[in-house]
Design a binder for these strands. Structure first.
Lengths: 144, 144
DNA sequence: TTCTATGCAAAAGCTTTGCAAATCA
DNA sequence: TGATTTGCAAAGCTTTTGCATAGAA
């Protein structure tokens, strides 16, 4: 139980789903390549790379299952764009996003997370999922 | 320059827009009532309260202008639901959201904000907009 | 008077769904 | 074999847009 394939398989067993060739290929592509992706761009890529047709519907359906399995998370920008990224081997879900170049930086600061958890505890809230997004201008884009 | 109407008016002057009856009524409704709202529900309410027809398009267009004027912010949940809320007289943009009852709690903790700003400074990122959403179960819903 | 805003309906994006055929267990 | 999945196209939702008319400045 130590790869994303195994994790997904376990989830599929639980919901009585099947691990098809398409799902395997999609999972492969998600976990082996770029971390952040938008569905339409991903669809193009998976079609290009895997050398055959993948229907839009199947990609959407598989992404949904991966999301429900907790293997990927959804990032929605204030402008309404939807990104996904895989969680595998990661604990945090926080991002700094440059409004100019679109680059996404992870936040590795444990102290922020602890502060948030402490606040939740204080008001009796039991947190399940957290999303912290900071938008602005990255160092490089400021210099331009 | 101390009411939301004035602030919006200033913005409209800047973009050479006009302050119409519909806009005034929409702004009134947003700032005088519930803090968090979804567009369709708001549309129903404004039609009910103001006793006349407001077109969907006008409501969307006005909300967009208010967003661009910085008077309201957009909250997008990981599930893709879009909420708006007014910023007037507030400094923070962070929320704790109960997955069960849907209630939204503000985060008033300055220490979290400072920590985030410190981290951005550390990596040379210049933050413009921040959104922190924590999902889980609120105290009441845990007790049920 | 001139130029923006409104209202309507159509169009646009993105995502989901129904159905017959294909595929997995 | 029996149930789920796929692919396709159609449908659904939310949001935007084109256009003629109404209204602000």
């Amino acid at each position: 139980m130590n790869s994303y394939h195994d994790t997904f398989k376990t989830y599929l067993v639980k919901i009585e789903g099947r691990y098809t060739d398409q799902k395997r290929a999609i999972v492969d592509e998600i976990f082996k390549t770029t971390k952040h992706f938008e569905v339409e761009a991903f669809l193009d890529r998976v079609r290009l790379r895997k050398g055959r047709e993948f229907s839009r519907a199947t990609v959407y359906r598989t992404i949904k299952q991966l999301f429900e399995a907790g293997l990927i998370q959804r990032i929605t920008t204030p402008e309404g764009r939807v990104f996904y990224e895989h969680n595998f081997g990661k604990k945090q879900h926080d991002h700094i996003i440059c409004n100019v170049c679109g680059k996404i930086f992870p936040i590795e600061e444990d102290i922020i997370h602890k502060q948030i958890e402490a606040y939740c505890k204080q008001i009796g809230f039991s947190p399940e999922y957290r999303s912290l997004h900071v938008y602005g201008k990255c160092k490089k884009c400021q210099e331009k």
